[in-house]
Design a protein around this nucleic acid. Structure first.
Lengths: 101, 101
DNA sequence: TTGATAGGCAAGTAGCCACTTGCCTATGGT
DNA sequence: ACCATAGGCAAGTGGCTACTTGCCTATCAA
């Protein structure tokens, strides 16, 4: 658990490219930056620069939706769906438990 | 069910003021524009113009998170948490069911 | 050591979005 | 009829952000 701020979480989810990245990580966990670039380009026709994807990953990571592990010159990215629970518990429940942002 | 587009849904949730509005509607359903304005100002110190809140409500409504009913010169706003299910089912499930945006 | 691969840092730009302001419409009370 | 209340429309503005570009660091293989 990494102390997820609601603001970061929702802003991270606001971008369609970042949601695509999460889709990719659901399908296969532990991908590198270059792998994600390639798959977004091939499967979705997104011709984004490597740097763009890298920045997206940083946003997702600071939102707690992605965790990364370095291994040699590779950096693997894993999905973490835990923060998503916040969304559910915030409005689906009839008793409001004090808002966070 | 109103055909919710993922893009609209996530963009609607991206703004902190809109999330506050949802919080207010959880607490009390069927508020008017002016009521929401007053409560945001009093409880959260948000000094936003009526028009700002009106635009936020429009965004929430086009995202399917709020439904409104006209009654005389009043327009009441109700919360609809149904679209939130989309968020849960998209990434919490290990089997990807074809993405939507 | 050299070169290739994987990734990071920083500045610049263009488009979007939240918010304001001014004016207009509609309903209800007196 | 009048006025106040509840809300809508449209244009303008400032700030944020997604993306690019150029250059730099680090790891591994030959």
């Amino acid at each position: 658990m990494v102390l997820v701020v609601a603001e970061d979480l929702f802003k991270a989810l606001a971008d369609p490219t970042r949601r695509r990245i999460l889709d990719e990580l659901v399908e296969r966990d532990g991908q590198t930056l270059f792998e994600i670039c390639a798959r977004l380009a091939n499967k979705h026709g997104l011709g984004l620069s490597r740097q763009a994807i890298s920045q997206h990953l940083a946003v997702l990571e600071s939102a707690g939706l992605v965790v990364s592990r370095r291994q040699g010159r590779y950096k693997f990215h894993d999905l973490n769906t835990e923060p998503l629970e916040l969304i559910v518990t915030r409005w689906l429940r009839p008793d409001t438990p004090e808002s966070t942002s």
